[in-house]
């Protein structure tokens, strides 16, 4: 398995086709262990189309011992209410977006031969039945109130999310509303091995997490990723059209 990943990581490979980029050698080593991958999907931006979800899940299934998928939970509604939408509309839109991602992920897992695909697709709500997740979530909420690094990372992430839904710079009050979303996802980049009961785990996403990068690299004095926590940016190969256009 690890060999396949290494081959796979070189550019323009044929099997799996994705480009994988890590932020540090430690993350690279964890990636090469290939024990567990958590594929993060995000709503609203139209990036995670069913075909891409299917390919990503197939890639995970092929190269890692275990594959789980995370789709954002009810906290995404706070980004929408922060951007001015009514709570009722925000919840309905969030639920619809999550349902689309969930259906795509479940179909993808099923087509990989997974007989219990629903158990492999998670949200911040479903993970709250796991003590490891709720303890970490409580911890990051506490540190958000007193650690400037955590606070800045979460607020900037919330601000970025808000910018995609409203014109101009979001106000601090809007950020207050939307910050629950990064806080709900932070446990997954700090200790996904504990949450998924594995020694090592790589969280993959289609782009770097920008303002959360200092936390991924362990720059906070209060919360940092465990030894088995990895992060990688995974992007699909360019389409034939994109290749032609250079």
């Amino acid at each position: 398995m690890p060999v396949a990943i290494c081959v796979f990581m070189s550019a323009n490979t044929h099997i799996g086709d994705f480009t994988v980029r890590t932020l540090s050698r430690r993350h690279q080593r964890i990636l090469n262990r290939a024990e567990h991958v958590l594929i993060g999907l995000s709503p609203f931006n139209g990036y995670y189309k069913p075909r891409l979800v299917r390919d990503l899940v197939a890639w995970g299934h092929h190269h890692f011992d275990r594959t789980d998928v995370f789709i954002p939970g009810w906290e995404t509604a706070h980004t929408l209410t922060g951007a001015g939408m009514s709570p009722r509309d925000a919840v309905h839109r969030s639920r619809r977006a999550a349902k689309r991602l969930r259906n795509a992920a479940v179909d993808a897992l099923r087509s990989c031969g997974d007989t219990e695909p629903h158990t492999r697709v998670h949200t911040s709500t479903t993970l709250a039945s796991r003590g490891a997740y709720t303890r970490l979530h409580e911890r990051v909420r506490t540190e958000y109130a007193r650690d400037p690094v955590v606070r800045a990372a979460c607020r900037e992430t919330a601000r970025e999310a808000l910018r995609t839904h409203c014109d101009g710079q979001p106000s601090e009050q809007q950020v207050d509303l939307a910050v629950s979303y990064p806080l709900a996802e932070l446990p997954l980049i700090l200790d996904s091995p504990a949450i998924f009961a594995t020694e090592s785990s790589v969280v993959v996403y289609h782009r770097e997490l920008g303002p959360l990068t200092p936390l991924i690299l362990g720059r906070s004095p209060t919360v940092w990723p465990v030894a088995g926590q990895g992060f990688a940016v995974v992007t699909p190969p360019p389409t034939a059209l994109e290749r032609r256009e250079g």
Binding site: G73, W74, A77, S94, R95, S129
Partner: peptide, 10 residues
Amino acid sequence: AVPEDDLPWQ
């Protein structure tokens, strides 16, 4: 605010 099947039972 979530599907009822998502509720996390301890």
